[in-house]
Design a protein around this nucleic acid. Structure first.
Lengths: 251, 251
DNA sequence: CGCGATATTGAAGTCTGTCAAGCCCTGTGG
DNA sequence: CCACAGGGCTTGACAGACTTCAATATCGCG
């Protein structure tokens, strides 16, 4: 629609960055001209969502909502990165997903959030009361299809994550993760081959089912192989994307 | 139609088992009195779905639809078990899910099925033309919410599968898988502690990210520990469900 | 500039994958 | 109904990969 893209992640310190509208991207399940992800919301729908929403901001490491908490709101990320995790009975933490701009946040079950959501960077989002959203969806069949589409998209992604994470070794998992991050952070960026890692090694390790040491070693391997270059612990330079995709077994 | 049931989900041999209506179970995301899975379809909605559906049957090992094929239909399983899998570039097969009665089948992307679906047992299903279903959903906002609910449910399940499969050892994965199967096969059963494994070890192994040998060894461990008893390669008796849950790290 | 937390690197142990062999089940055909 | 053949399942041995434990290096924040 408009250039909500330029804000997705980093943004030069602007005087008053204007807020992009609510945004839901997905690959439609029906055949379409564009085989990639597309904006599913029309301007009217964006306006309708804005009408029931409030823009909220979270600082780094803030809990957006807790696991088990009463689920009253759904969030549409505007900028920043978040993670969701569950706490196991034995106290361990299990990262279940990372969320980027235009992602939806607030999956619930029986009126309770199924995981804790936490901001990994400063984060802004549209906060939509669940009830209002339900009313809106019930009234606008097209909007409803939008959410169906998005959920299908997420489901496919989740299945792919499972399949690839489960069968590959550490190097392949990390390569795949880097590529996923890279695509998620895609913007109208000058330098297209830089990836920032807003999360800790621990979070990556947990998400991929590895130890933090294994992450380090895999990064070392990829660097030695000339596929990437580490620029400090939170930034990577992609040197050979073709090889990265092969390492991730995407090809 | 016929009594394919006694294989997968046993049902007393009735002369003419009447076909159960379309069925979608899920835990609602909104708070409800019943915290478990509930039937989301009203009788009217079931009738509407029947009106656009055809009941189809598949024999064991039949392909229901192929990966990459034009996605024209969505299926609602009535009886039997199916699996979906993708073929990797190197020819390997990746099982992405198992489907049971009342599950939905036919996830697509850009008009194409994202995986091959195959019957593991004789299977019957409602076959719904995608276009008709879309029309129906667009007209009936409640039905629409049903599908949203079901998709959320599937998404949660997928995330749980990932989280548990990735972090646990072979024994825990198999224990969790057995419990999942057990719950999926729940019917008005006489013997509540029997689980049938309609799929090959290879399929289980692939789904859990293990080798067939690891599955065998894990079953052996569980049997030695007195948690289960093998009754031939396709049936298990659950001896200690409490311990099984602990083994699966559910507690 | 210094401290605490995070990240990396090294060494030993454990678990699973792989390879190989034997057993069991199933389904077929007589 | 029984025998047989083929495929699936199980079990054992070994190598490889990851985890764990431990120590060092580095980053980031006050």
């Amino acid at each position: 629609m408009d250039k909500d893209n330029d804000l997705t992640i980093r943004q030069p310190v602007a005087a008053k960055p204007k807020i992009p509208p609510p945004s839901i991207f997905a690959k439609p399940f029906a055949r379409s001209t564009d085989p990639g992800v597309v904006q599913l919301l029309t301007e009217d729908e964006q306006a309708a969502l804005i009408a029931i929403s409030r823009v909220v901001e979270f600082r780094r490491h803030t809990v957006i909502y807790p696991e088990g908490g009463r689920s009253r709101f759904v969030y549409n990320v505007i900028s920043g990165v978040a993670e969701t995790y569950c706490l196991l009975p034995d106290g361990e933490r299990r990262v279940s997903s990372f969320l980027f701009p235009s992602d939806l946040l607030g999956l619930s079950e029986n009126g309770e959030y199924v995981a804790t959501a936490q901001a990994l960077t400063p984060l802004t989002a549209y906060k939509m009361p669940f009830e209002d959203l339900a009313r809106l969806v019930r009234r606008d069949p097209d909007l409803d299809v939008v959410f169906l589409c998005k959920l299908c998209h997420e489901l496919r992604q989740a299945e792919r994550h499972t399949v690839t994470a489960i069968h590959n070794d550490a190097r392949a998992r990390v390569a795949g993760f880097i590529l996923w991050l890279w695509r998620s952070e895609v913007t109208a960026l000058t330098d297209d081959t830089t990836v920032t890692l807003p999360m800790l090694r621990h979070d990556i390790a947990d998400y991929l089912g590895l130890s933090t040491e294994a992450i380090s070693r895999a990064l070392h391997q990829l660097e030695t192989g000339g596929l990437i270059q580490r620029r400090g612990p939170r930034a990577l330079q992609l040197l050979n994307i073709q090889e990265l995709r092969r390492a991730a077994r995407e090809i």
